[in-house]
Design a protein around this nucleic acid. Structure first.
Length: 472
RNA sequence: GCUCCCUUCGUCUAGCGGUUAGGACGCUGGCCUCUCACGUCGGUAACAGGGGUUCGAAUCCCCUAGGGAGCGCCA
């Protein structure tokens, strides 16, 4: 039995988007599941549009997702001699031919075909003509004229194409460079790719590629064409739907395991299971169980998964990943409490790391203004007494006693002394210290804010209440 | 226009001839509770339409409708 070898073959004309990431993931999983190899190949034969920046962006995305490859990255631009050799071979065997049809003829042909309501395709005009290699020309593959090509696809099943529908595609441009369908075929064959997993926009190409493979005398790999990922409105996923670059997800505070988990469930499932670690995926993934229909990207569900992983992931690691997001808010995490304590306290209320950072700013610096609704509701004259009492009680607390348990006790005490419900004391205190009505438990909140800032902010709240009373 | 493909709650999906059509996200009601969350219990909501085949169809076949992809000297 031959070893399974899959590849991910992006063209470096932009960042790594989630559709590509899912294709890469499925290829990766298939290889890992079968104990095979996963290969990365950069298809940069389009010199006009390929950029080194894009290559870096793709590599960065793969690394962030943890989709490690066993071989590569290979660059097609470094394999031009191989492609030329195969083109020559096909030409010498009469399986390809020179064509010098001018653009005008091709345009007219196409026009006529459209008018006749037939599929536009090259008519094989130059087949059998002997064209001098010194004059400008391209080389076309002689596609079989009769018969059918059958793609035995792992997700689509058997898909048949009539050879009459396929035309003689160009395999070498007039500038001498090879084209996509040729390079893919050569690389997949020579890199020993056993299973090609790619987007279903390639289904049509597959028929052509199988024909080239057959002519060249190579065994075609097995194919699996994945359905597309659509935006929330059902149209092709694009930037206008939201983030599509995996790096953008990272920068917005998504965890790679959350994105991977979300992606694996797009078109694939294992019973009712929703949570999958990468190890789970490798164990359970089944390419044959992939759906045929396109799926819409649901940002809300991704957010739910992300929250789950923020909440249940290793606290130290989450803290580490949170750090740069605090930095973006001009916060120096080392100037505050232990970051893991912040993560533990806030994780249940953040869907992204960016959000986690945002709702934690009060821990590091005084807030600018009170949330109007919160201030109106809780910083009223009735709150004055509880706040004064709290301040007095807290001031007596030694720095080393500034711990959640003792802080909780203080709030309890004041509430009991004033015969007030816990909330009547805790809420004004919370708004005073946080600036808004939502935060972790009041004990944890006070602990994270620290004694000095807590007392300062209570004073500020008292002044606020007095000023408001004077105004009324 | 032509070729190929797809169609179960709003979304991701389970289902593979007999189910009260299940789960998850979202939305929503209760509980928990110092707030917001988390958690937990419940609710809402789907087989695109029409013909067959069959004792019996979400499941098999055909047609219609809707959607998608491809038809480059792009990949």
């Amino acid at each position: 039995m031959t070893t399974v070898r899959t590849r991910f073959a992006p063209s470096p004309t932009g960042f790594l988007h989630v559709g590509g990431a899912r294709t890469a993931l499925f290829s990766y999983l298939f290889a890992r599941k079968h104990g095979g190899q996963f290969i990365l190949r950069i298809e940069d034969t389009d010199l006009e549009r390929s950029t080194p920046e894009s290559v870096n962006a793709i590599l960065e995305g793969m690394t962030w997702l943890g989709l490690d490859y066993d071989e590569g990255p290979f660059y097609q631009t470094q394999r031009f001699e191989r492609y030329q050799a195969v083109i020559d071979e096909l030409f010498d065997k009469g399986l390809a031919y020179r064509c010098n049809c001018p653009k005008e003829r091709l345009d007219k042909l196409r026009e006529r075909q459209m008018a006749a309501k037939v599929k536009p395709r090259y008519d094989g005009h130059c087949r059998g003509k002997s064209i001098d290699p010194s004059e400008p020309h391209v080389i076309r593959f002689s596609n079989p004229v009769e018969g059918m090509v059958v793609v035995d696809d792992r997700v689509r099943g058997r898909v048949a194409f009539n050879n009459g529908e396929l035309d003689d595609l160009i395999i070498r441009r007039s500038d001498g460079s090879p084209t996509y369908n040729l390079t893919v075929v050569v690389d997949d064959a020579e890199m020993g790719i056993t299973d090609v997993i790619r987007g279903d926009d390639h289904l049509g190409n597959t028929a052509r590629q199988i024909n080239i493979l057959n002519a060249w005398g190579k065994e075609p790999p097995r194919y699996a064409h994945l359905p597309m990922i659509l935006g929330e409105d059902g149209s092709r996923l694009s930037k206008r739907h939201g983030a599509v670059s995996v790096i953008a997800f990272r920068d917005q505070g998504y965890l790679p395991e959350a994105l991977l988990n979300y992606l694996v469930r797009l078109g694939w499932s294992h019973g009712d299971q929703e949570m999958f670690s990468v190890d789970d995926m490798i164990e359970l993934f089944d390419i044959g169980a992939v759906n045929k229909a396109a799926a819409s990207f649901d940002y809300a569900k991704l957010a739910w998964l992300n929250q789950h992983y923020i909440q249940h992931g290793d606290t130290k690691r989450i803290a580490h990943l949170l750090s740069p997001h605090l930095g973006h808010l001009d916060i120096d995490p080392s100037a505050g409490p232990d970051l893991t304590a912040v993560v533990e306290a806030q994780a249940p209320r953040a869907k992204t790391l960016a959000e986690l950072a945002e709702i934690s700013t009060f821990i590091y610096r005084d807030f600018d203004d009170y949330d109007p609704a919160a201030a109106k509701k809780h910083l009223r004259p009735v709150a004055r007494e509880p706040l004064v009492r709290m301040r007095a009680a807290l001031e007596l607390l030694a720095l080393e006693d500034w711990q959640p348990e003792l802080l909780h006790h203080q709030v309890d005490q004041v509430a009991a002394e004033l015969e007030l419900a816990m909330g009547k004391v805790a809420q004004p205190l919370r708004v005073a210290v946080v600036g808004r009505a939502a935060s972790p438990g009041i004990d944890v909140t006070l602990h994270l804010v620290g004694k000095e800032a807590t007392l300062r902010r209570i004073d500020r709240a008292l002044a606020f209440i007095d000023a408001r009373a004077a105004q009324a």
